[in-house]
Simulated assay, not measured.
Amino acid sequence: MFEGLNMGDMGKMLEEIQKKAKELEEKNESIELTAKSGGGLVKVTANGKGEIIDIEIDDSLLEDKEALQILLISAINDVMKMVEDNKKSAALQMLGGGMNPFAGGQGQ
């Protein structure tokens, strides 16, 4: 099962994966994702790590607490989904870029 497996190469590969993961985390801090709800009446912005960094609320919603709550929840849920999708995409790119140690023997 482990024929031809060089532990030195595995160690180098793990170091490279750790390095790429750290780069990805640093990159995610600078990414900004924005979701809107209510036709743009509410905007929520998060960074790639999933931290909410800005919320914009149109003044017209300040009189309608229930509508504000619904639109805010919607925008937050949307931006969190965007963050998750971004993380999955970045992880797939990292693995697809030759970093997948299990891809070598596929289809041969």
Rank of each mutant, 00 (worst) to 15 (best):
M80R: 07
S37T: 07
N77G: 10
I31E: 08
S30C: 03
E25V: 13
G97T: 14
S37A: 15
L14D: 02
N100F: 00
I53K: 11
D9C: 01
K22S: 13
L72C: 05
G98N: 10
K19Q: 14
M94R: 02
S89F: 08
G98C: 06
E3Y: 03
M99R: 10
S60I: 11
G11F: 13
L71P: 07
F2R: 01
D9Q: 09
Q106Y: 09
S74V: 00
K27P: 02
I53G: 06
M99L: 14
P101V: 11
E23Y: 06
I53F: 02
K88S: 11
I52M: 07
M13R: 14
D78W: 00
S30R: 15
D54L: 07
T34W: 00
N77S: 12
L72N: 04
L5Q: 01
L92M: 12
A103D: 13
N28M: 14
G104I: 06
Q106D: 08
E51C: 05
S89H: 11
F2P: 00
N77H: 11
Q108F: 13
M99K: 10
G98W: 01
G11L: 08
Q108L: 13
K20T: 15
I73S: 15
Q106M: 15
N77C: 03
K87G: 04
M13W: 04
N77I: 01
K36G: 06
L62E: 15
K49F: 05
N77V: 01
T34Y: 02
G96T: 08
L62P: 08
K20Y: 02
N100T: 11
I31N: 01
